[in-house]
């Protein structure tokens, strides 16, 4: 074990290595490590935020869904009511129309009956007159009984 000037040489080498490590090795790696841990913590934070956002969005979508369901059933109920009203209206209109047609038909029938009765009355009067004419041709003047026939005619 002999101590000599190698001591100084080694001390210089050692000092250079310390300086070198301080300048070129330590700072970049430490910077990279710090940067990475920062990014990781940011990433975790973002993930947490995303998770919360997702939960909120899910809640919101659930709300929207419920609202839509409520609206839909409301609309269905409304339209059912509307349909009932329409059916009712159609029914009413049909009844009114039927009544109208019926009334018209009745009126026509009555008119027809009237007319038939008139024409029958005329025919009966004619028949009566011609019959009476045949019976009474010889002895009775047509002119003399015309008043009587008219009176009968009025009674029919």
């Amino acid at each position: 074990m002999n101590i000599n000037a190698t001591l100084f040489g080694q001390a210089i080498t050692f000092a250079i290595l310390i300086w070198f490590t301080m300048k070129f090795v330590w700072p970049p790696v430490v910077a990279a490590l710090d940067e990475r841990s920062k990014r990781i913590s940011e990433g975790l934070e973002a993930a947490e935020r995303g998770r919360q956002d997702y939960a909120k969005a899910e809640l919101r979508s659930q709300d929207a869904l419920n609202e839509a369901k409520a609206r839909a059933s409301e609309i269905i109920a409304l339209s059912e009511k509307q349909a009932q009203i329409i059916v009712q209206q159609a029914h009413d209109a049909a009844v009114i129309e039927a009544n109208r047609v019926k009334a018209q038909a009745q009126a026509e029938v009555e008119q027809e009956v009237m007319r038939a009765r008139d024409s029958l009355r005329d025919r009966v009067a004619d028949l009566a007159v011609s019959g009476a004419e045949k019976i009474l041709r010889r002895e009775i003047n047509v002119q003399a009984h015309a008043d009587l026939l008219t009176a009968i005619q009025a009674e029919l």
Binding site: L7, Q10, F14
Partner: peptide, 10 residues
């Protein structure tokens, strides 16, 4: 020992 002493003295 020159090396080890150089380091420890530094």
């Amino acid at each position: 020992p020159n090396l080890t002493f150089a380091m420890s003295i530094t």
